[in-house]
Computed example of a mutant assay.
Amino acid sequence: MSAQVHRIDPTVFARWPGYCRGIVAVRGARNGPSSPALIETLRQTEAGLRSRTAGRAVTDVPEIAAWREAFRAFGAKPAEHRSAIEALSRRVLRPDTLPHINALVDIGNIVSLRHLLPAGVHPLPGTPTPLELRPARDGDRFEPADGGDTEAPPPDEIVFCQGSQVLTRRWTWRQGAGTQTLPSTSAVFFNIDGLPPVTADRVRLAMQDIVTLVEQETGGQIVCCAVLDAAHPTLTLSIES
């Protein structure tokens, strides 16, 4: 066994002191097509979002407006680069139904819509290079999942990375090549991001929903469930060699 470090750079908390990130790590999941029950849960969650936001513009929803302000603060234009929760919500509010991709991805979408926060899922790395949320640096590179040209994020952009490989650009905007959760993926970690007015307690509720759905739908083993915040910016968990 070796150690996998997840950490958040202090500059993130200096600029957004109320930010927190929940991490749920899973092993032994039976991923693949979602069950009829999970698909029905996704449809019910979509309907719940439409009911909760009826009569409001998506940009007026406080949880989404918070991400728009954060994006502006590090130089992104939220009308062009929408946070994951805004993009997901807009699609549902067209109205449209989300495709059921696989169980782990669908669980992330359900929890994201239910709690109005970004909830991404990544394969659990097999190497011990630390995972970091931080401002972009010289030498950072992002490989788009669509096979497009390699990108160099500008300084000050908030990125999620492993070494110089950017896994997600613009904090919660888009994951890169090699980060997709496939039907064969059995070991993953979920990131659940909370900006005020979302509280750490609300992030924990979302994490518990992930735990329940993962155990029910995939039989996965929860190996870590923790919240990173300004007082606890680093997490170390064991990974298989």
Rank of each mutant, 00 (worst) to 15 (best):
I64W: 10
A66H: 02
G126H: 12
P36L: 10
R202N: 05
H6S: 11
H115W: 14
L98A: 04
L167P: 00
V203R: 12
R27C: 07
L93G: 03
I110R: 05
R72G: 01
L131W: 09
G75H: 04
L182D: 08
P196E: 07
A231N: 14
K77A: 12
E143V: 11
G163P: 07
A231Q: 15
Q4A: 05
L131M: 14
P233M: 08
I101F: 12
T59N: 10
S2Y: 05
T185R: 07
Q175H: 12
L93M: 14
F71E: 11
V121N: 04
M1D: 09
I85S: 03
F13T: 10
A47T: 12
T185V: 07
A76Y: 02
V92G: 01
K77N: 15
L195M: 11
A14Q: 15
G22M: 03
D96I: 00
A57C: 08
V188L: 02
E132L: 04
A65Y: 02
R91T: 13
E86H: 05
V203Y: 12
R52W: 04
R82M: 13
Q216I: 06
E86Y: 00
A103M: 10
T150L: 15
Q162R: 13
V166Q: 00
A57M: 09
T236I: 11
A3T: 14
M207A: 13
L237S: 08
A200D: 13
A145K: 12
G32A: 03
G22A: 05
A136W: 02
W16I: 11
D140S: 06
D9T: 05
W67F: 15
T199W: 11
F71D: 06
V211D: 11
S241V: 10
S2M: 15
A29F: 03
V203T: 15
F190S: 01
V166E: 00
G18Y: 02
T59P: 00
P196Q: 08
A37L: 13
T127G: 10
R30H: 14
P99V: 07
R141H: 11
V159G: 01
L235M: 13
L104E: 07
A87L: 04
L38D: 01
F71R: 10
R91L: 10
P78Y: 03
C161Y: 01
V198M: 14
S164W: 02
L42K: 12
S34N: 06
D201F: 04
R15E: 12
V58H: 04
P196C: 07
R7T: 11
V61W: 03
G120D: 15
G48N: 14
P33H: 10
D60H: 10
T129F: 03
Q216E: 15
V211H: 10
N102W: 02
I110P: 05
G219N: 09
R72Y: 02
L113S: 08
P123E: 08
T168N: 11
L131H: 05
V159P: 00
A29V: 01
A25M: 09
T11K: 08
P153G: 07
D96G: 12
